[in-house]
Design a binder for these strands. Structure first.
Lengths: 193, 193
DNA sequence: CTATAGTGAGAATGACCATTCTCACTATAG
DNA sequence: CTATAGTGAGAATGGTCATTCTCACTATAG
């Protein structure tokens, strides 16, 4: 109950989430044991279970945090491109392409997690679904801001292209599908003028 | 060495693959034990390991078979629509929509499998990649047969839309993304006339 | 100083699973 | 009939976790 304990909890949580972010994405949820989280974060098992009563809870916290950080990265990359005079809805593909070309790329963490039946429950599925809804909503807002016709539909179409691009890039170990998706997006934007 | 034994092996293999097809897709690879395959197929563990020396081998056989059966289903559905006078590249989305609306839909088996890091090795990844390449090739052939401009690029664009549609439909438990993808495809076809 | 609450290290527990092994049985070759 | 190869049933083995528990230690309240 000392104030020091509270502070420790906060930084221990941060360390655990930092480790979770690294290993859950790289190796999948089933591929990571609580011991791995301990080893990577330096937070003992006892403390770990004090902070997150079960692996499920930790996974939920990771997914929730990932939504925030991924969206921040995505929106940040797009905002930077917009500032450089590029079309935001096309810049989205450039951001994904850069990510997919970086080492360790394994596709969308949310889609991958949803595929792990052993590790994922309804709570997790809800987080995954609202992440995708959040992404689509943001794309719709971009379409709207860009003055396109039927911006909501355009946002959804761009979203499907992005998800397909992320998945195919992972499975084929190539950025080519992202280029194809970008080409398609470009045609769709032209058609929505 | 008796001919009867050979026959048994053939039908035992068939029974095992039939079970594998059902349970691996529904519960994921990690979610299925060899015991589950035995219970579902009626082939004893001993025999099972005689036919497939390891779970990895069985998974590889399942993925290989799945490529064949999935493509046959996909091409069949599209051919039927073509006979009914529909545009094949749009019929693809109708086929996926029907599948996604059926109970037990969980997205693309290949993309899901690739996400299961614990269960998948390089051999499996190659099978997954060539499945996607096969699908894209087929779509390119359809685009070519349809007389569209830049058929290869069009096939890839449609492919990205299909993969995005399959993934989002699974994650959002909705066929709406498939409709959006179909709309997008329709615009792309118009732009490729 | 001394009792106490919290902690790290890591051992113990209980499940689960791939794979192998045992044993009793069957059908067939001879 | 009798030795043999193959089989089913399911137990045994070995490994991997998630989660809990033990024990010794530390710092602090009093």
């Amino acid at each position: 109950m000392s104030p020091a304990a509270t502070f420790d909890d906060v930084s221990a949580r941060a360390a655990v989430l930092r480790s979770a972010a690294a290993v859950f994405y790289a190796r999948g949820i089933a591929g990571v044991g609580m011991v791995d989280i301990r080893d990577d974060s330096g937070v003992s098992l006892r403390r770990l279970y004090g902070l997150y009563p079960s692996k499920r809870d930790l996974v939920a916290a990771w997914l929730t945090a990932r939504h925030t950080t991924w969206m921040a990265w995505f929106e940040g990359a797009i905002e930077r491109s917009r500032a450089a005079g590029e079309e935001p809805l096309l810049a989205a593909f450039d951001a994904i392409a850069e990510w997919a070309a970086s080492p360790g790329y394994r596709g969308c963490a949310f889609v991958n997690s949803a595929a792990e039946t052993t590790e994922i429950d309804e709570t997790h599925r809800r987080i995954v679904a609202s992440h995708k809804e959040g992404m689509l909503e943001y794309l719709g807002a971009l379409a709207s801001a860009g003055g396109y016709a039927r911006p909501d539909r355009l946002g959804r179409m761009i979203g499907v292209l992005l998800d397909g691009a992320m998945a195919e890039a992972a499975v084929l170990s190539s950025v080519e599908p992202i280029a194809a998706a970008r080409d398609a997006a470009s045609l769709l934007l032209a058609a929505s003028r």
